[in-house]
């Protein structure tokens, strides 16, 4: 992992909302992170730690107040199809079938009609949604919606997959199943993945490196490098390294979670 080229270079990035005004909020302060090609990064922390803001900066939805976000040596200046996003609330287009949702990015890339139908069907099959191509999003379950959203994000073949608490709205069982699927899909595709979560076990289960963040101001607190091989499978949840890492992280993050709870 370390031998491959630096894919994303986040250097001295700060994001301040309402800068210069009395109620200014420092969402991120001086964040530095280098991400290798094909790496799976989990951004972990309580709410307010700036992990979603960092993802949004990476997506190009917002711009940093200071510092730079560099992808392949070029600064990220706005959203583009080399970095697609999976949202917590799915953000599927409700008026389009799952098939058409997945085709959307291909249509934007001007892939011919028949080819894009094929590619979309293939991606829906990979997320186990064969037979649901013609359903509208409101006709399927939350887990299926998120699978479709993952297929939609992967179909245009982005370099980087940005996932913003994608499993946050799902029930525990669906979450576990989808964690395994995401791990399989990401190691198959070899894409760089940045995965925002506040689930400790989820972060440790999925990531090459868990980037632990702290709130007020949002900053990187520590980075945990995983020892688990890929793809991750269910039995790794019983691995001694996994369990001890999860409980150590729980101990370090607990005070902040308690603080958050009191507020």
């Amino acid at each position: 992992m370390t031998s491959s080229a630096c894919h994303i270079d986040i250097s001295h990035v700060s994001k301040i909302f309402g800068a210069g005004e009395p109620g200014e909020v420092v969402a991120l302060r001086d964040v530095d992170l280098k991400i290798a090609r094909g790496e799976f990064i989990a951004l972990l922390g309580p709410s307010g730690c700036g992990k979603s803001t960092l993802l949004s900066l990476l997506a190009g939805f917002q711009t940093a107040t200071s510092g730079a976000l560099i992808q392949n040596g070029r600064e990220i200046s706005g959203p583009d199809a080399s970095r697609t996003v999976v949202f917590q609330d799915y953000a599927l287009f409700g008026w389009l079938t799952l098939q058409k949702n997945v085709e959307f990015g291909l249509k934007a890339k001007k892939v011919p009609k028949r080819e894009r139908a094929e590619i979309a069907r293939d991606f829906l099959a990979r997320v186990q949604l064969s037979g649901f191509e013609d359903k509208l999003p409101h006709e399927v379950s939350g887990g299926m919606k998120q699978r479709a959203a993952i297929a939609r994000a992967m179909a245009p073949d982005p370099e980087i997959l940005l996932m913003d608490e994608p499993l946050g709205a799902l029930d525990a069982q669906t979450r576990v199943l989808l964690q395994e699927e995401i791990s399989r899909l990401s190691s198959e595709s070899g894409k760089t993945v940045i995965f925002v979560t506040h689930g400790i076990d989820e972060a440790v289960f999925l990531a090459d490196r868990v980037v632990v963040m702290s709130p007020r101001p949002g900053r990187i607190r520590e980075i945990v490098t995983s020892r688990l091989p890929f793809p991750r499978t269910a039995e790794m949840r019983a691995d001694p390294w996994f369990t001890s890492t999860v409980s150590n992280l729980w101990e370090t993050l607990k005070p902040e979670w308690q603080k958050e709870d009191e507020q």
């Binding site: 939805f61 199809a81 609330d89 287009f93």
Partner: peptide, 17 residues
Amino acid sequence: DRNQINAALCLGASRWL
């Protein structure tokens, strides 16, 4: 929903699309 606009933008949608 702003996220739907963002989703379209990150999928490479042109202004017209």
